[in-house]
Design a protein around this nucleic acid. Sequence first.
DNA 1: AGAAACTAGGGTAATTGGGGCG
DNA 2: CTTGTCCCAATTACCCTAGTTT
Lengths: 75, 75
Amino acid sequence: MSSLKVVAPDGTFTTGPQTTERLLMPGEVARVFGVDPKTVNRWALTGRIPSLRTPSGQRRYRESDVNALLSTDSR
Amino acid sequence: MSSLKVVAPDGTFTTGPQTTERLLMPGEVARVFGVDPKTVNRWALTGRIPSLRTPSGQRRYRESDVNALLSTDSR
DNA sequence: AGAAACTAGGGTAATTGGGGCG
DNA sequence: CTTGTCCCAATTACCCTAGTTT
């Protein structure tokens, strides 16, 4: 497979043919679940969701991780 | 402006600010119907109303689902 | 350079989920 | 069978200020 690297304007990047893995910001994740952005941070601190950090300390979330939590049953 | 990305089960996705559907908390839904939040909880458990769950287990309700039930002029 | 929007923190009051009972 | 209420432990929302990003 080709290891093509695509770099977006905001610095995010993806490698591979079609795997567009965008990084979501806390507010975006918060809107997905209907919670406060601080709550998403708390999830990261308690290990409920994996997170990356920018050099300045802000958190970013992989949408694959978000979708994995989203697909959890809805009883 | 941040564009929220919504990913479908098949991998396709759409981006856009207007696709953001508001999610209501149990108490908000309860006030709409004039019942106790616990009752809304039971409606979700019995499948009378669809619901999402946060990673910690709390429920959120789509505004469109709530409105759909409101307009359900049964008889 | 400035303004607007978003974020990370900390602290506190309010809400939620689940079980059981009337 | 459905709903409201009481209990508890856990989780979340809202307030603030400061730093970051666009």
